[in-house]
Design a protein around this nucleic acid. Sequence first.
DNA 1: GATGAATGAGCGTTCATTCAT
DNA 2: CATGAATGAACGCTCATTCAT
Lengths: 209, 209, 209, 209
Amino acid sequence: MTKNQVPSSIKDEALVEKRREQMVKGAVTLFTEKGFHKTTTREIAKAAGFSIGTLYEYIRKKEDVLFLVCDSMYERVKERMEDSIDQNETSIDNLVCAVRSYFTLMDDMQNEVVVMYQEVKSLSKDAQDYVLQKERDMVAMLEKVIINSLPNQLLEGDTALIANNIFVQGQMWGFRRWMLQRTFTLQTYTDRQIHLLLQGLNVQEANLS
Amino acid sequence: MTKNQVPSSIKDEALVEKRREQMVKGAVTLFTEKGFHKTTTREIAKAAGFSIGTLYEYIRKKEDVLFLVCDSMYERVKERMEDSIDQNETSIDNLVCAVRSYFTLMDDMQNEVVVMYQEVKSLSKDAQDYVLQKERDMVAMLEKVIINSLPNQLLEGDTALIANNIFVQGQMWGFRRWMLQRTFTLQTYTDRQIHLLLQGLNVQEANLS
Amino acid sequence: MTKNQVPSSIKDEALVEKRREQMVKGAVTLFTEKGFHKTTTREIAKAAGFSIGTLYEYIRKKEDVLFLVCDSMYERVKERMEDSIDQNETSIDNLVCAVRSYFTLMDDMQNEVVVMYQEVKSLSKDAQDYVLQKERDMVAMLEKVIINSLPNQLLEGDTALIANNIFVQGQMWGFRRWMLQRTFTLQTYTDRQIHLLLQGLNVQEANLS
Amino acid sequence: MTKNQVPSSIKDEALVEKRREQMVKGAVTLFTEKGFHKTTTREIAKAAGFSIGTLYEYIRKKEDVLFLVCDSMYERVKERMEDSIDQNETSIDNLVCAVRSYFTLMDDMQNEVVVMYQEVKSLSKDAQDYVLQKERDMVAMLEKVIINSLPNQLLEGDTALIANNIFVQGQMWGFRRWMLQRTFTLQTYTDRQIHLLLQGLNVQEANLS
DNA sequence: GATGAATGAGCGTTCATTCAT
DNA sequence: CATGAATGAACGCTCATTCAT
């Protein structure tokens, strides 16, 4: 299942792409402010800059908008992660660097993350599976980096667990901002988490560049 | 603000307590299955075992049910945490023990945790503040245990961060069960997280009883 | 149909009388403030000083309260009118005196009058007929006074019309207070209306005592 | 405040006008039969010939329907009054003529008048003020005619009082029809009231054309 | 006689979705 | 392709009335 699983009655694919971008952009703002359920389709249409009738030319159901939002988020996350991670590099530096860029990314996408956390349940079972798979892919990316950086040093389960921890700690930066962003800046939060992580991995930070 | 901030038109306080327990129990199941917004007040009433009219004798608005769910959860969590933590013990054992019982608790309350994660935004600003304060209290409890167990060994910010990490990792067990509970049992999950934690703290696990 | 047409399950008639008085007193205030429909039976019970269960021991339906209010009003009006009118006096003085006391009465019962005007429609057909009959009785009393005061000087229709006009002008003092009581006091309103009335009747006011 | 204070989500203003006319027409019948409170919004929609959803495209709240009814009534009354009164004419004829056309008008709008008398209290404070102001305007129109017809012959207070009496007597024809229309036709009612009025004003009717 | 907890029919209102223009 | 008027199922909530204690 991909975004192509959300059919549109409009033929011109470039137009579909464009309209959906407008839609997603407006929707994220609205969902962040009032949540998926309290946002009406009319509001989405208005925020996107077209009429309610037009909105329904590009989606079938309200839920499709939410799906599109999630999908576009993962798309962007994946893109940026792939750009910033060198999957073949094997030093610890690479792990640190990956965590840094992931946390920065999560900082940029706080709103999207919050929306996702709160609204996935509103998606159909199929769409949920799709979204969950994307999450697994993300965690897998982190796992790979860990394994590359620390070959043969960890139990298999521990790798998965550490990847998960990092993944969640990134999301928490946005999701628990009311608590964390009182005490930390993105910089200090990242630094301290990396510090704890490396200690947990028994790595001497002094060795890092 | 406490549950007493949700007024009832019924005078018999014991009855109010009892009915609200029925209500919360039914509501958690429903909210877990379909979320707060897709659950109707009639369903809540039915699940609680009384009529829609009776439901509204014990609350003012649908939102009150959600608040009651959150409140009862924190009540129970706090109670059990206080029972199982010796706030004066200063050994590392105490920290380990606290984490264990907290994780077990989170395992028992997975549904409640998921509901909280997904639906707090549906509460009024006031109620949100109340709930968030409860979370802060919980994290503070963990912080205290950490400080007691490792006096003078950590930066202040690190204590807060570690407490927060533990807190989130406990909740993670529930809200990411679709991922974690494939690979781990509660036992192994707890063991490995504690292992990583202690390594991060530079503690020799061998010393533990 | 009389108030005895509103059955009570309580045997003690004196008690019924007493409770209903409490009820009517509270109800008039409430109906004046918020109208019959927006007043709840619970509010009536509370204002009367007893519980909702007790309220329903003395009436069958909410509508009965309204009927009781109307009935008690006419009772009191009739009583006071009969006290102040000498039905056998034949001078113009008697008419003037009757109008004066009727207007004063309407001033005292402004709230009741307003309630009646606005809520009779909520009564059952039977109760409406009863209330309308009471009004006819009242107008008939005025007609009698007019005839006594001005024997053989008016067309039959005119008597009825004048009686009606007086009747309505009395009620209007309360019902249109937002307009009239800006310009007039009860005293001046009464004086000017009587002046116009007597001119219309071609009576020399100078002759009056 | 005018009917434009009742916003509609429909853009086509002509359509709004048309639908609201349908709405008001249906609503008057229903309100006359069963009163504002006992009439449901679904009944109003049905009587207007559209669905409940459509009804709410043209109003915000049920109360708006009542306001629209009142507003449309005054609109029509004012229009017809202005058509039939020559505000510069100074003869007594003009007053008589004004009263006649006003009474005829009230005959045509009996239902609306009854609704107004019974339901204004259900309007919001703002709307009530608006409606009451309209009444004042109407009375002021009558006052003007009286002054023009009888310059310098009346106390100022008397003019207001007479205008008020005429105004109420017109409405009385409708809201006391159960009493008056047994004895009078509109014709005879009008004739006799005018007769009494002119006598009260000390005018020789013989002089009239 | 008095109480108040329980009931459920019924109301006002919203909003996703459709479809004629 | 775009529009926006129309629809009606469904929701949250109220309140008159009953009846066991």
